[in-house]
């Protein structure tokens, strides 16, 4: 009976879909907010009759979109900003990297700003690099870029998947902090993809064109295609470095259930960060993106609450190697 198939039943595998949903939601918010800003400026100028047809379209569509929720366009100020630093109904949230970079650049502690990073910081201590997998607007593009790499490879074009030293990004973080002190300017904002994406979308929509950051971001996309898979996130990104350090002793981590594992190694292929779930090697780089959980045909991967990864548990009990060993002994 071919059509009777053992379907994996774990609910955790749907987390990956949820992750795509949050990624796209964040990304579309970043596109929507500049349009809302434009709409607000039109309203502030009381100049509807003077708008060009395109501007009228923007104004009309934003009005129909927002009028069910707010009466006065000025109330739309409740949601402003990007993932680098934003305001959400009076709650100010900032990227911990922004805070660290700013503290080093200004060599002073401005508590109202530092406190804005506390919620993300706490979440990172619990969940590790979850920002990289679940929220970062650049991740969406990088993951699509990785799909592109698969197609390019199928089309016979060379796509490089070199392995570099993971510790390069910690050097980038350290050098960036030293340079921030030295120059007295927060430099990470210029090389940190999520900050660039948020800004550049706003520039393109509200100010009429991309800035210098867009060029840098395109270069990182090329880096991912031509040097290493997800290379920028794995080897260069200073934010990734900071989150990896913070999430080193995270409580929520993915663990392989060795009794269900059949050594198929699909998880290792699914992991864009080049980690090794098959050998229980997650480490501080894992961003809990759950792509491996979604790819596992036997539901052998799941979450656990533990400060450390377990040591290598040996070959999966459903695999050939384990059976051979059992017969041998």
């Amino acid at each position: 009976m071919e059509n009777v198939k053992l379907e994996p039943s774990s609910k955790l595998r749907h987390l990956n879909k949820l992750r795509w949903l949050t990624l796209t939601t964040v990304f579309f918010m970043l596109i929507l907010l500049p349009f809302i800003y434009l709409y607000q400026t039109y309203e502030a100028a009381h100049a509807y009759d003077l708008l060009t047809p395109t501007e009228k379209t923007i104004s009309d569509s934003m009005e129909s979109l927002t009028s069910p929720f707010v009466k006065d366009p000025e109330e739309l100020d409740a949601i402003k900003g990007t993932t680098w630093s934003g305001t959400l109904f009076g709650l100010k949230l900032s990227d911990p990297l922004a805070v660290v970079g700013q503290v080093f650049a200004s060599l002073s502690l401005y508590w109202p700003f530092i406190l804005t990073a506390f919620i993300p910081l706490f979440a990172t201590l619990l969940l590790g690099r979850f920002y990289c997998g679940w929220i970062c607007p650049a991740t969406l593009i990088y993951e699509l870029n990785d799909n592109l790499a698969v197609w390019l490879r199928k089309a016979g074009l060379p796509v490089s998947r070199r392995k570099l030293d993971r510790r390069i990004k910690y050097v980038v973080l350290a050098v960036g902090l030293i340079l921030s002190i030295y120059l007295g300017a927060a430099l990470f904002a210029s090389i940190y993809p999520p900050a660039i994406i948020g800004r550049e979308i706003y520039y393109a929509i509200a100010l009429g064109g991309f800035g210098a950051g867009a060029v840098f971001f395109l270069l990182t996309l090329l880096f991912d295609l031509m040097v290493s898979r997800r290379g920028f996130c794995r080897y260069v990104c200073p934010g990734g470095a900071l989150y990896s350090l913070l999430g080193r002793y995270r409580l929520f981590r993915i663990k392989r259930n060795v009794t269900k594992c059949n050594d198929c190694a699909k998880c290792n292929v699914a992991c864009q960060f080049g980690l090794d779930p098959l050998q229980d090697d997650f480490g501080m780089e894992c961003n809990n993106c759950t792509a491996c959980i979604a790819s596992c045909p036997t539901d052998a991967l799941g979450f656990t609450i533990n400060m450390r990864d377990s040591a290598y548990q040996g070959p999966g009990h459903l695999g050939h190697q384990y059976k051979k060993e059992q017969e041998g002994s």
Binding site: K80, G81, A105, S106, A185, A186, Y202
Partner: peptide
Amino acid sequence: AKCIRCGKCGESCP
């Protein structure tokens, strides 16, 4: 030294 280049000032300028 203090600016983190978030762009929110521009986004709030009516």
